[in-house]
Amino acid sequence: MTETNREVLLDVKNLEVTFTNNRKKFRAVKDVSFQIYKGETFALVGESGSGKTTIGRAIIGLNETSDGDIIYKGKKINCKLSKEESKEMTRNIQMIFQDPAASLNERATISYCIAEGLDNYKLYKDETERQQKIDAALESVGLLPEHKSRYPHEFSGGQRQRVGVARAMVMEPEFIVADEPISALDVSIRAQVLNLMNKFKIERGLTYLFIAHDLSVVRYFSDRIAVINKGRIVEIAPTEDLFAYPLHPYTRSLLQSVPMPDPRIEKNKELIVYDESKRDLSGEKPKLREIVKDHYVFMNDREKAEYEVQLQKMIEERKQLKVG
């Protein structure tokens, strides 16, 4: 189901982010490695505090990394870059923020908010082209040109988030870090923003790093999923594989936490609570290893043997279900 030799756009290798507070160190992200291919939507899923946002911000350069490499198009970007290089990186990698109420400058007009990036990079020849670009950006997210002179507080949450999307899109980026872009929105307008992002993905061949905790949204939106727990990636797999054959106990517990819209199933559901202290952690140190093609699990040799048995069982069950 995946082509081989796809172009790797972003390669994260052994990333570590450490926060220091009064000489106390906290490793928010530990030894994280993943690759994002050009044109795909890669989702990062985990509970709050697991380090998803930190990874996203490290990629965009807002958080400093303490170890490891972030390689964008073959170039390391988490080190000191020359002024032009870092400017180019900033333009190419854009971000959609979580809270539309907090991520827009309340004292600036919509016109200023959208044109901020344009002005910084002088992405226009003259004032007419600038206005045209702002109008086009507003129109592409379904807003009206007359909104230009309005202030953010006059808009609804969904409209604001679309301004946030338009502001990122006007820079014509290649890669977008979407940090829970819909979690602060009303359920009724979530689909609107997601469809908008999908539209841009198809139209412009964008690549997304989609950070979320809502599994149903992730399933709808992304091509591949990485599950992250306590700053460590525990499983990476293509979306359908992950939902069909979750292997790591944390992934299983996370998937099971999604409520079923059927009270009978819900009542009889046997809850798997993930508790690391109760796990058998014998054997050598686990690593993120491939179990079947494109499916990576954080494990050691002993666990690998267990997971392989489990996987076989699940495949058998699936087959029987289909036959039945």
Partner: peptide, 24 residues
């Protein structure tokens, strides 16, 4: 967050000071 957003859009510290901080 809106100041972080300005950073990711490539705004300089001076621009952030005059457009994002001072009006507040």
């Amino acid at each position: 967050e809106y100041n972080l957003a300005s950073r990711t859009l490539g705004s300089s510290t001076t621009k952030i000071i005059f457009h994002n901080i001072l009006p507040y």
